[in-house]
Simulated assay, not measured.
Amino acid sequence: MTDELRGLLRESAEAHLPDRARILARVGRGTAPRPRNRERVRVRVRALTWPKIALATLATAGTLTVSALMVVTTPHAPDPPRNPTAAAPSSVARPAAPVEGSRTENGPLWADGSVDPHSNTYWAQSNVTLKAREPLTSLVVELRIALTEGVRDTGSWRTRPAADFDLSARQEGGFLVYRWTLKPGRSVPSGEHVFAGQYDHAPGGRDAKDDTYRIDATAGAGAGAGAGAADGGASVWGGFA
């Protein structure tokens, strides 16, 4: 190759060198987003966003609807009874209170019925207190305890000597009946005397509203407990309410 040919080739190559400034300008124009492309991007974003928003809204509404239905349809358990510890009524028939009411004072007699303060939730003692203004030559004291649940005789006592009285304790007519009868030839001095019956009952206390007592007596030289007032006979009765 001659020197002349080499020079021609060099000149031709130099004439085809790339214009760096023009190339950079074209690259910049190619990478910049066109206005039409930007608008398409916005439209596409909106097209994708609204379905998602609609689906999210529907899902939320569905959740709220299901929750509301669950609240409405959830069965409500009945309220417990206000008093779950109250005892059931006793199955034992309770006799009615005496129709004759009460008479606590008559002639030489005065009487009162009371539940002893030492009674407790399982056991009780009912006291009949008698005040005699004159000596008594005959006397019958009867204490009637209604047969509520668990009532059972556990004993009795009196302030007068046991040898002066005949005592019976038995069930009759829906009652536990204690009866003290003064023996013939014995007497009861004037003053205060107590006759008491003792018994078990169902736990939890006991209502004595149906319990009663009665006392028949003769003062002085009367003919006996059944004698009339003119002969010194007198009777008193009452309850324990």
Rank of each mutant, 00 (worst) to 15 (best):
A217L: 04
G197C: 02
Q171E: 15
V140W: 05
H118K: 15
R214H: 06
G150R: 04
E192Y: 00
A229I: 08
A223G: 13
V141G: 04
H118S: 15
R214E: 12
F165K: 07
V140N: 10
V177W: 03
Q171N: 15
G197I: 08
Y122C: 04
S138H: 07
Q171H: 11
K183T: 07
F195D: 02
N120I: 03
R170A: 12
L136N: 03
T137H: 11
S126W: 05
T181H: 06
G185H: 02
R206V: 14
E172Q: 13
T181Q: 14
F165M: 01
P117H: 01
Y178M: 07
N120R: 10
Y178S: 13
R133Q: 10
P184N: 10
T212W: 01
T154K: 09
G222W: 08
R160W: 09
A227W: 01
A146T: 05
A162D: 14
S187G: 10
P184V: 01
D211Y: 06
A146S: 15
V140C: 02
H193D: 14
G191M: 02
G204V: 05
G174S: 05
G222N: 08
S119A: 07
R144M: 06
S138A: 15
F175H: 13
S156D: 14
T137G: 10
D153S: 10
G150Y: 04
G224A: 00
A229Q: 14
F165S: 03
D210S: 12
S138N: 09
G220C: 08
V141K: 05
T181W: 04
D200Y: 11
A208W: 13
P184E: 09
R160T: 14
L143W: 02
A230N: 12
L139K: 03
P117Q: 05
V128C: 01
E192V: 15
G150M: 01
E134F: 02
K209G: 15
G150P: 01
D207Q: 11
R160C: 10
S138Q: 09
L182H: 06
R170H: 13
E149A: 15
A219Y: 03
G191V: 00
F175K: 07
N120D: 15
A202I: 03
V177N: 09
I145C: 02
H118M: 12
L176R: 06
G224P: 01
T159M: 07
Y178C: 02
V194R: 12
Y122K: 14
A219L: 02
S190C: 02
E142N: 11
A223P: 09
W157T: 11
Q125F: 00
R158Q: 15
A221P: 05
R144I: 00
G197L: 04
E142P: 03
R133E: 14
S126P: 00
S126A: 11
T137K: 11
G174Q: 05
N127K: 06
L147S: 05
